[in-house]
Every structure is written in structure tokens, then in C-alpha cells.
Simulated assay, not measured.
Amino acid sequence: MNDSQYHQLVDDAFERIEQTMDSDDFDIECDINGGVLTLEFENRSKMVINKQEPLHQLWLATKFGGYHFEWHETEQQWICNRSGNEFWTLLVESITKQSGETLSF
């Protein structure tokens, strides 16, 4: 994957998250600043998703731990390089656990 493809994949993910937060009735603030997307919940806790351009990874930092995802072309998904979990599944589970909000992407 080249840098352009990587940035497009991450930008698509960020846009999907932002649209979900904007389109539904969730009490979750979404802020994108450069390569960092921050979710802030009603309980004032935060979750951070950011680009790791040199590694072509997407990182997720939650109250309960950090995760590093790599793009798997064959599955067309971001997969955690330690647990093997898929990004969207882990994101939904983490949001529910951290904020109490149940949503889907």
C-alpha cells in the first residue's frame, strides 16, 4: 500500500465515524484535528483514534487499552495486529463499554 492509499482508507474511516456521530442521537462529541479523531462521551472520558503514517497503521486508545490496526487487503478490513480483532467491531464494543452508548457503523 502506498501513502496515498493509506490516507484514503483512514480518511474514509474517520468520515464514517463522524457521520455516525452526527446523524444519530448520541451524546458523543467527535473532533478531528489533523490525523487524530477524538470522541468525548457524556461521562467526560475520551477515546482517541489516530493515524500512524510511518507504519501505515490506525491506532485506537480507549480507557481500557490501546490497539494497533493494519489494513488487510484480502479481508478489506483493519485488523488488530495483536488480538486479530476487526476495527469496527472493537470500536463498537469499546464505545459501549466506555460510554454506555450502543451504536453501529
Rank of each mutant, 00 (worst) to 15 (best):
G100N: 13
F69G: 05
L55N: 15
P54D: 14
A13Q: 12
E29Y: 00
F64P: 01
V36P: 00
S99F: 00
E53P: 07
W59H: 01
N33D: 12
E70A: 14
D27L: 02
Y67S: 09
R44D: 13
G35K: 02
K51C: 09
D22Y: 03
M21Q: 08
D25P: 01
I49P: 00
I17F: 07
F64R: 04
E18K: 11
V36D: 05
I17R: 04
R44P: 00
N43I: 02
M47S: 03
T62M: 00
G66K: 09
R82V: 12
E73M: 13
L91Y: 03
V48W: 03
I32Q: 14
N2H: 07
D3T: 11
M21C: 14
N2Q: 03
K97R: 11
S83Q: 14
V92F: 00
K46D: 02
G34Q: 07
V48T: 15
S94P: 02
E40F: 01
L60Y: 02
K51Q: 09
Q52D: 12
E18D: 11
Q77W: 02
Q8L: 15
E53N: 07
G35T: 10
E18I: 11
S99K: 04
Q76T: 08
L60A: 06
L39V: 00
Q76D: 15
L39Y: 06
T38H: 01
E93A: 15
E93C: 06
M47G: 06
L58K: 07
L60I: 02
F69K: 08
G66R: 10
Q98P: 10
N50L: 01
S83M: 14
E70V: 12
F87A: 12
E93D: 15
K51Y: 07
F26N: 06
M47P: 06
Q19C: 05
L91A: 09
E29H: 04
S94T: 05
H72E: 12
F14A: 09
N43Q: 03
W59E: 08
S45D: 10
F41E: 09
I49Q: 04
K97C: 08
D24P: 01
T102L: 14
R82N: 13
V36L: 15
L55V: 09
T20S: 13
S104Y: 09
F14P: 01
V10K: 07
D22G: 05
L91D: 07
M21I: 15
E101G: 00
T96N: 14
I32E: 09
G100M: 15
N33T: 13
G65K: 13
A61P: 01
L58M: 10
Q57V: 06
Q8W: 13
I17N: 04
E15I: 09
S45R: 12
F14I: 05
R16E: 09
Q57W: 10
S83H: 06
E53W: 01
E29A: 06
R82L: 08
I28H: 02
I17H: 04
T89K: 11
Y6D: 07
K51H: 05
E40P: 03
R82E: 14
L9W: 08
E70N: 13
E18N: 07
T74Q: 14
Q76H: 11
L37D: 07
T62H: 00
D27A: 09
W78M: 12
E15L: 12
D27R: 03
M21R: 08
G84I: 01
H68S: 11
S94G: 12
G100Q: 15
E42P: 00
F69V: 10
Q8I: 14
R82K: 13
K97S: 12
M47A: 02
D11R: 11
Q57K: 12
T62K: 00
V36F: 01
L90C: 10
